[in-house]
Structure formats: C-alpha cells, structure tokens
C-alpha cells in the first residue's frame, strides 16, 4: 500500500509537468514513459469522469502555428512575468523527542467516564529520540538573487513513540482496557531560503519555522463496548536545512535534504522530487 501510494504520488507530480504534445523528447528515457503514462492516465480519468466516455483524440494536419489545432503556441515556455512557482513532494526520516510529557486523558464507556494517565518520553529525565517517517509536500515561489519562500506540510507516523496508558479511575470494579493505538504527526512550516544554481546542480540553505502536532491514539475496551481517545500535543519547530538537487529533465529535479533543529537535538534527512525548482 505504501509503495503504491508513493508511485501514485510521484506520477501525480510528474503529470503536473508541462505536457509537450508538440514534440518528442530528445532523450526517450524512463522519465518520458512515466510522463506520458501519468499524463494519459490523468487525461483519461478526467475525460471519463466528466463525460462518461473518452473524447476523440485531436489529430493534427499541420504543425505550423496558426494552422495546427491541437497544440497552442509556446508549450515549450512560460510567459514573462509569470510567478516562478515550484512544487515538491518527498519523504524524510525525522528524529525528535516525542513531546508528550505526563498527561491525563478521559474516555467514556456507556456513559461512564474514566480517566487514564500516560507518561511520555518528554517527562523522562533523559528523553530518547523517536523516529518518524514523513511524507512532505511544499510549494513556493522563487525570488530574485536566489532567494525563495515556501510553505511545507508534513504527515507521518511515529515508529517508536508509543506510550503505555494507565487507567487511574474506575467505576466499581469496571476497569477498561486502554491500549496504545499509534502516534501520528502533522506539521506546518514556513520556509525562507537561498539557493545557488550551476548547470543542472543546485545547492541551498534554508530556515524553517512552524509547529508540529503529535497525536497519541488509544483504544479502550470495556466488556462489549469499544471506544477511542487521543491526546494531542503542539510544539514549535525551528530548524536549519541544507539541500542539494539535480535537474533530471527540463522541469524536474531530484534532491536530498538534511537539517537540524535549533531548539533541541532533533534532525531530519530526506529525498524529494521537485517540479520547476530550477529557473
């Protein structure tokens, strides 16, 4: 499922690249095959969903501008003054201290309220770092002098950030069985950076700041009644990153990033695919 989602996501980004129907590629490689397949799939899905049946393909009788029907002028370029935006998706591994300290939650079974207590890693005298695999997406705008601004979102699941809940209140002898049901993370970041570009290679430095929300999910069972509960923590994120990217096609680049938190020992490392990252 994860592999399929990754391939679909990659295909979606590649499909966003300008569709150059007016010409064939000079290096007919795997990238073009993926582009064509992704583009065809998106077009086919759009046609089928909007009209129920696929449209007749447009056929050209001339490739001369003004005489051709299917391709508009300038599929190879972009207008002057157009905002130089870029998009990116990727995956990363983060290591940070799971922010849950000592917290108390409540849950309900058949109208009866119960309390439970958890002691997270942050409450320990020597907190350990937890790992989280995240999927990240960002969009931004290039500015003069190599500067850029971007917004980034991340979604992930902690691999080892689980905590064990303990029920602290009961009704008579009734005592629900509360279990850890996973930890999810979502974050939103604003980014300011600078990048230098030479040929097909770019190097960049950036500062990111925002928030991270980590939600700890719990399942609870009491006799035939099952319910869920969760605790969410928020914490600020401030980190510096370095990036390197290599342009593999006119509008597509592959890259890697690594960064470290300015607030604690957290760090990240990841890979990404970008669209329009280069000028």
């Amino acid at each position: 499922m994860t592999r399929r989602a990754t391939v679909v996501a990659l295909a979606a980004v590649l499909a966003l690249a300008p569709h150059r129907t007016a010409r064939a590629s000079s290096c007919k490689g795997a990238l073009d095959v993926i582009l064509e397949l992704a583009g065809d799939a998106v077009e086919a899905a759009g046609e089928v969903s909007s009209k129920g049946t696929p449209e007749e393909p447009c056929s050209e009788t001339s490739d001369v501008h003004g005489h051709r029907r299917c391709t508009k002028f300038g599929s190879w370029g972009r207008p002057r003054g157009e905002t130089p935006w870029f998009l990116e998706i990727g995956g990363a591994m983060r290591r940070f201290v799971s922010p849950l300290g000592e917290r108390t939650g409540s849950l309900s079974h058949d109208g009866q309220q119960f309390s439970y207590r958890v002691v997270g890693p942050a409450a320990r005298s020597r907190p350990v770092l937890s790992s989280v695999a995240v999927v990240e997406a960002r969009g931004g705008v290039r500015l003069p002098y190599g500067l850029f601004v971007a917004g980034e979102g991340e979604l992930g699941t902690l691999g080892d950030g689980s905590v064990s809940p303990e029920v602290v209140s009961s009704v008579g002898r009734a005592m629900p069985d509360v279990r850890n049901a996973g930890v999810t993370m979502i974050s939103g970041l604003g980014i300011v950076g600078w990048r230098a570009q030479a040929d097909n290679l770019s190097l960049g430095l950036e500062a990111a700041a925002g928030f991270r929300a980590v939600t700890y999910h719990f399942d609870s069972s009491l006799r035939s009644c099952d319910t869920t509960s969760s605790l969410t923590t928020f914490e600020p994120v401030v980190e510096g990153r370095a990036r390197v990217a290599y342009r593999v096609a006119a509008d597509i680049a592959l890259g890697a990033t690594a960064g470290r938190s300015a607030l604690d020992d957290a760090w990240l490392a990841g890979l990404f695919v970008s669209l329009h990252d280069f000028e």
Binding site: R23, D63, H65, G66, K72, G74, W76, A250, F278
Partner: peptide
C-alpha cells in the same frame, strides 16, 4: 493572436514552425 515572447527554462529546448 497567441504569439508572444516567452521564457525558455534553463537547459530546455523548444521548437515552432511559423508561416
């Protein structure tokens, strides 16, 4: 009236036939 000056991306190429 489609013709206009365009920006060609770095290390990109393109083609047009005009009458």
């Amino acid at each position: 009236g489609e013709l206009t000056a365009l920006q060609l991306g770095g290390r990109s190429d393109g083609s047009e036939s005009l009458a």
